[in-house]
Design a protein around this nucleic acid. Sequence first.
RNA 1: GCCGGGAUGGCGGAACAGGUAGACGCGAGGGACUUAAAAUCCCUUUCCCGAAAGGGAGUGCCGGUUCGAUUCCGGCUCCCGGCACCA
Length: 813
Amino acid sequence: MKYEFQKIEKKWREKWAKANTFATNQKPEVSKAYVLEMFPYPSGNMHMGHVRNFTIGDVLARYLKMKGYCVLHPFGWDAFGLPAENAAIKSGVHPAAWTRDNIRMFRESAQRLGWSYDWNRELSTAHPGYYKWTQWIFLKMFEKGLAYRKNAAVNWCPQCGTVLANEQVIDGGCWRCQSPVTIRQLEQWFLKITAYAEELLRDMETLTGWPERVKIMQKNWIGKSEGVELDFEIIKLHERVSVFTTRPDTIFGVTYLVFSPDHPWVDLMVKGTQYEEKIEEFRARRPSTRENMKEGMFIGEYARNLFNNECIPIWVADYVVAEYGTGVVMGVPAHDQRDFEFALAHNLPIRVVITPREELLQPECMTRAFLDEGVMVNSGDFTNIPSLEGKERVADYAEEKGIGRRKVNYRLRDWLISRQRYWGCPIPILYCPHCGIVPVPEEDLPVLLPEKVQITGEGNPLEKVPEFIHASCPKCGASARRETDTLDTFVDSSWYFLRYATGNRDDMILSPEDMKYWLPVDCYIGGIEHAILHLLYSRFFTKFLADIGLVHIREPFQNLLTQGMVTLGGAVMSKSRGNVVEPGETMEKYGADSLRLFVLFAAPPEKDLEWSHRGIEGLHRFLHRLWRLVIDHRNLFFAPLPPESEEAYSIRKYLHKTIQGVTVDIRDRMHLNTAISKMMELVNFLTEKESELTVRVGIHQAYREALDTLIRLLTPFAPFISEELWEMTGHTGFVSEAPFPVVDARFLKEEMVTYVVQINGKVRDQFGVEAGLDEERVKEIALSLEKIQKWTRGKTIDRVLVIPDKMVSIVVR
RNA sequence: GCCGGGAUGGCGGAACAGGUAGACGCGAGGGACUUAAAAUCCCUUUCCCGAAAGGGAGUGCCGGUUCGAUUCCGGCUCCCGGCACCA
């Protein structure tokens, strides 16, 4: 009987669908498991990265189901986004149709791969029934002051024709198309993620199931910095301006003040002076992208240092970021490397105010800024105070005198969510000439995205849809204009994992009962590229939804698995590189089970996986060998078997060692590659034992049980062949619903152990004895071994160490 | 520059708690079956010396701790990733 994988896989695919095998069960008395893989953007065909991602999750979901958990394992589509619109520009297909077709193709592949999703819960972010609630959340945030509009310098991608969030600028380029990002001054919608900066940082400590590197990336991104704001007086304006510094101990070393060129006071200070024109020139000269520059100019104005009443020149420079701190920095060339370089370039004085204990620093001799701790000098009443203590003393003094205050700053900026694109969720806002910004009333949701649009690639298509733009103000009835920007698609995906738990219901966004039961997500699996973007946004949304009482959790993802990429020739598979291996073709040739096994076996989940055509053949061969092994011994399942003899013990032992290993690999380590290798070893072992079956009838029962168990162990990994073999061996029902094998600890006990004997750290011999033998006896045996005697003859034995049941270590001279 | 992570046979990788390094798979070599090939099965496969028995070296490099180090500590080299004027 041949292993006809195509036929088998089709058969079980249909049976599962018909029986609704993977529909979600929600029983309060049973433990739950929520397994989730990051939902895909449906951009054409499924690629190997998807295959890997969803197969890893599927093994876990199937394993937990067999373990008796109520499992939530849903699937959906991150369906809004730019590629759909670009396709429309290129080929004239409507984004909705393009997306629908892609989803259909993707879903077909997904079902071919045998992923155990509950398709009843399938959702799409582009469906009005979903984005209605995305808009609803936006309105709630607006209500709480967390969604707001402001004019700011924003990142602009000329290629995509839209603005981008900070998180979406990678190496100065667009995260999607890599084009260099330029800066534009625009009025846009933002979400106040910074209101949660401290909590997002603090709660990271509770994320014990997250990879350390993801947490570090988020921590760096949030970028907490504790320091002091110190005031300076601007002479002519008679106004005080604050600077943020983490080094208040260097306040006496300030030799100039620097404003960001975008600081609003700069214009006030230069108004009517010779510098007014020069500033304009300076701003115009600035590069349009964020580059490392050290340009600056004096603006003819001075400020007073309130600590020593000294007057210092005011400069503007492009190394000061307008959006961070106060947009003004005190220049301390002696103790800050950037200030040092700036001072050298523009001939500004360098004054040492912190010096190492053993020597006195001379500014002329410095080749770089002195950043270490030391003792304060030239610092008025603070002279001779150690710099570390000085930090606190200066801060205390500033607070006492009302010329400064302790301050915490974050690198994290508010999330820019406006997008000047069509294929996204409309922002539910109206602009009324009388009432200003007016939210769309809840009962008018969803604000539907119009279907009839002209997509040309020139500007936002929504601006050319009069019936969309024209609306009346819900407050005063006047003719109002509708917001034409759509939401960043990362907004759509920041709460989908909550929606899955409640299903696609119309009457409410999330049901408290479902939230309580299913959340948090027990295991979330996806690519490392979302370490900041999606994972940070989702944490933010969860915290907000908790604050308005919709969920009881403040962190959505208990455990996180960041899986590596699939490469060919060392590079990520991509159409432009032409190194794509199509999952469809691969399944045609080897079947879904072989493909699943290969992507699981070739590397541990978190590492990159190099595709290998030969490699998948190896896994395909494994399935053939397994098939033959079970089919050849089918008769064991259909005949009464003789009583078991002592000889069966070794089979049971090997079997239970395998169950133990596979279980630990899935449950505790997610080392799915080694789990598979352990099943391969069991197949090899049983193949070796085959010849004994004819002469030793006493092992028949154990052998049958080994085959039966093997099929169940393999089910989460290769479900199709497992179902078929399960049926062929006379079982009824789905093996997908059968209990996962359980270890019998009696068979794990070793009664014979092998001792390795080392002499001076080198292995010289070994011997077998019963386990737990007392040490003295073990020593005796070890020393009496012929090979050991050869090595110890004529030498002095210094010591003999016994590691119970493992090793004897002898030290000789 | 700062912060992470990594380096193990020809290749992907294993060694979970400091205890026989190289499981499992791929590739390669040899053999069986076959008219022949494919498929399948069996044997060998870290390197060096040796006919073998056996011996020596070996987990990026240098050193340390230890009876014993791929594993722990210190110092380097190279690779990969994140952040990058954040005051």
